[in-house]
Amino acid sequence: MDNAYDGLTEDSEEKHWAFGTGFSTALAGVDRAVPSGVDHDVLAVYCLMLGDDALIYSQRLAEWCSRAPELEEDVALANIALDLLGQARLLLTRAAEVEGADRDEDALAYLRDEHEFRNVRLAEIDCGPGPGGDFATTIARLLVMSTHRLALLQRLTGSLDPVLAAIAAKGVKEVAYHRDHAAQWVLRLAGGTEYSRERMVAGLERVWPFTDELFATHAVEAAVAEAGVGVDPATLRAEFDEVLDTVLRAADLDRPDVRQVAALAGRAGRDGVHTEALGFLLAEMQYVARSMPGAVW
């Protein structure tokens, strides 16, 4: 065993690299034709909405990498960020394909400006490790976002668009774990020390003002729900409330008594009207890709 790489090679022709990649495509075999009667532009924008939620939220969660309170938690938060990034890639790819404008996932992620992003504002705000929050705020957002997304994806498994249905079926398993992880931490922080309880209460108060936006029906969402390919978020509210109440009751916490952040002349994240935070997030995320036109990665 004189060559370090030989010792690791398994059934590979390339002796200097160990282990093949052997990945399978997540949606292999799924029919990618858009169902008849469905408006392509509307479906594309809907895919952007769900994809941008996942992409922007993943970008925020990944900020914890190497900064979590414990190594196990570093692994867990990175895992959740990776799941969401995976969902974002499938959804943006679907959006690009349905839109038919010769863009791909990267063109959508890196070459759109703030007002073209369709994510809810809760996905983009800083909830820690930056100055906008801490671990408890991060957990509060994870509870709210994952409860909303799990309810949404569960309904979406019945979408008439086979691609969205398949993406949702894959995502349900992932987001169920995200929600469980968040709920367990809410119990620990609320029931841990006096200080951790204060932080948990403050964290919920930080994210709660952005919850109503999750359930406000945008015209695109109404249209896809009508066509049987998407979900009207207003129909998720009861389930969301029930889950949140169950977790808060178990943690002996009250629902935060705080005002909601209003939309701007009726327009919010789903319309491309965001908080000041998104511009900075995108500036950081996009600058390498934009500064080297024609580059391949």
Partner: peptide
Amino acid sequence: WISRAPSLRRKAILLAKVQDEAGHGL
């Protein structure tokens, strides 16, 4: 470089790699 990775595939690879390092440490 995770936040600035210039493609989504590279971002996923890099995040997964750094996560593996936490696992190795564990």
